[in-house]
Simulated assay, not measured.
Amino acid sequence: MDVSRSLNWSARGGYAARGVVYLVVGTMAVLAAIGSGAAEDTQGALREILNQPLGGVLLGIVALGLVFFAIWRLIQAFGDPDGLGTGGKGLVIRAGMLGSAIIHLALAVFAASLIFSVSIGGGSGGGGGDPTAGWLSWLFGRDWGRWVALGIALVPVGIGIAHIVKGWKASYERYMMADAETLRRIRPVCAFGLIARGVTFIVIGILAFYGGGIYDANDAPGLDEALQWIQDLPFGWLLLLMVALGLIAFAAYAFVEAWYRRIGVERAGV
């Protein structure tokens, strides 16, 4: 069995799974913008998948894809197949990939908990809450916890800015195995998607920073709160619609990565 080839295809499946999740998030945000539903975060998107016909099977496939994506992020973080190096910028990007691995693995675990809950007759509405809430409550309950919360709030702002720059400069193209004409055709969608996701990260950071002094680990701001905040602005429905379409474009970007991205697990130093 060719392990490198299997990991390459697994990574592509992971990108596709991420695309499915954001396609659902974006679609639900569109419905919220036109007054036909409520915006949801990625966990809400997984619940929505479960509620569809054959939802358990579909969610199981997505969960497996999220595990594959988390593994690929770990390979990127520790093996550096993209050649980012050990300079300051490279280490920051690789640390971000490690964080992405943890987040997507947590999403996969959440999806599995939903499937298990349904299989034993518990319904599809529960998720058991955030498994990190306990230690976060302890952390932010310390006298110095407020300053930690304020510092952590800057992380999604930095991620958001990085997404916007990546979309604007199309720096992702260096990792794509596509000809110039294909890159020219997909560039507007990819840029729109990355910038829209960057905006939501910045809003999350602003909300977290604003509430840093009264942080509640059981009610930390997330994607759904960011979308709701955008919706509450003047002409918020229109702004939310634009961001929602951008998140759908980000899903398209994930599908593009699933098809065209240079994976190269064999170059990883692991």
Rank of each mutant, 00 (worst) to 15 (best):
S4V: 07
R5F: 12
L7F: 10
S10E: 07
R12S: 02
G14S: 05
G14A: 06
Y15N: 02
A17W: 00
V20T: 09
V20G: 04
L23K: 00
L23D: 00
V25I: 09
V25E: 01
G26Q: 01
G26F: 06
G26D: 01
T27I: 13
V30F: 04
L31R: 05
I34Q: 02
A39N: 02
A39P: 10
E40K: 15
D41K: 03
T42A: 14
Q43H: 11
Q43D: 11
G44F: 12
R47E: 10
I49V: 14
L50F: 08
Q52W: 12
Q52E: 10
P53D: 03
P53H: 08
L54A: 15
G56T: 08
L59M: 01
L59Q: 00
I61T: 10
G65W: 07
F68G: 02
I75H: 04
Q76E: 15
A77D: 00
A77W: 05
A77V: 00
P81L: 13
D82N: 07
L84E: 10
G85Y: 02
T86L: 13
T86H: 12
G87E: 06
L91E: 08
V92H: 12
I93D: 02
A101N: 04
I103V: 14
I103S: 11
L107V: 07
V109E: 08
F110A: 15
L114H: 03
L114D: 01
I115Y: 12
S117P: 09
I120W: 15
G121S: 09
S124R: 03
S124D: 10
G125E: 11
P131Q: 02
T132H: 08
G134H: 11
L136C: 09
L139I: 06
F140M: 02
R142V: 09
W144A: 09
R146D: 07
R146C: 02
G151E: 02
I152P: 01
L154K: 05
V155L: 15
I161R: 00
H163K: 03
K166H: 13
K166G: 08
G167V: 06
Y172W: 15
E173T: 13
Y175N: 09
M177I: 14
E181M: 07
L183A: 02
R184T: 12
R184Y: 13
I186K: 04
I186S: 02
P188V: 00
C190G: 12
L194K: 01
I195C: 11
A196D: 01
R197T: 05
T200E: 11
V203N: 06
I204M: 14
G205E: 03
L207G: 11
A208T: 08
A208Q: 10
G211Y: 09
G212H: 04
Y215I: 06
D216G: 05
D216C: 06
N218Y: 15
N218C: 04
A220Q: 07
P221S: 00
G222R: 04
L227E: 01
Q228K: 15
Q228E: 14
F235S: 13
G236A: 05
W237P: 03
L238Y: 04
L239K: 10
G246C: 06
L247I: 05
F250M: 03
A252R: 00
A258W: 05
W259I: 15
R262D: 13
I263A: 06
V265L: 07
G269V: 13
V270E: 14
